[in-house]
Amino acid sequence: MIDPELRSELKKQGVFTTSFEELYNWGRKNSIWPLGFGLACCAIEMIATSMARWDLARFGAEVFRPSPRQADLMIVAGTVTKKMAPQVVRLYNQMPEPKYVIAMGACAISGGPFKQGYNVLKGIDRYIPVDVHIPGCPPRPEALLHAFMTLQQKIDGQALTGPERPRHLVSEMPSEFPVPQFGEHDLEPPSNPAVWRPPLAAKA
């Protein structure tokens, strides 16, 4: 690693130094291509975010891809019903690594106003790992932009080597997650314990 002081001195002299990791993350964080899919009213806010007024293109993320094979980011925008949950997990499995998930809105993070219903999943984080949660019903486009910036910071800080490297660079970690099956009374299993455990604080 280059000494930061030397680096800033070099910069003043017109010499730009970088590392492969920085360059790689810089490129990745500024070209996050989301998967173009929405589940409910949050999707309308997501669409608004991509249009001229909020202009998601400033972050290099305006290219909503119609295929999961070309997408880096899944924005779970809206209510995930139990009938839809297996398809969402399947789409996530079909995305190539590195992949990220933003759970947008009260429904996607917890079930929201439909939490006590018989047909709504209590948060998509029960089946797939979520990087950024956005509360709100629906969240304003600014909130989604903030989530984007949070995700960019996360990508920027990811080391490519060493024990702190992200999940997709650890060969033992799964890149696919089990798709829940339709059961007679509920989805089976009701959650993936490898991804989601009830927070301990709530048990006390």
Binding site: K82, Y118, N119, K122, F182, G183, E184, H185, P198, A202
Partner: peptide
């Protein structure tokens, strides 16, 4: 609901799945 589903959720005696862990 999905085809494999056996219950009738709007009946008064519907027993919902116990997912109150959090």
């Amino acid at each position: 609901m999905w085809d494999e589903f056996k219950d009738f959720p709007m009946r008064k005696d519907y027993v919902e799945p116990d997912d109150y862990e959090y």
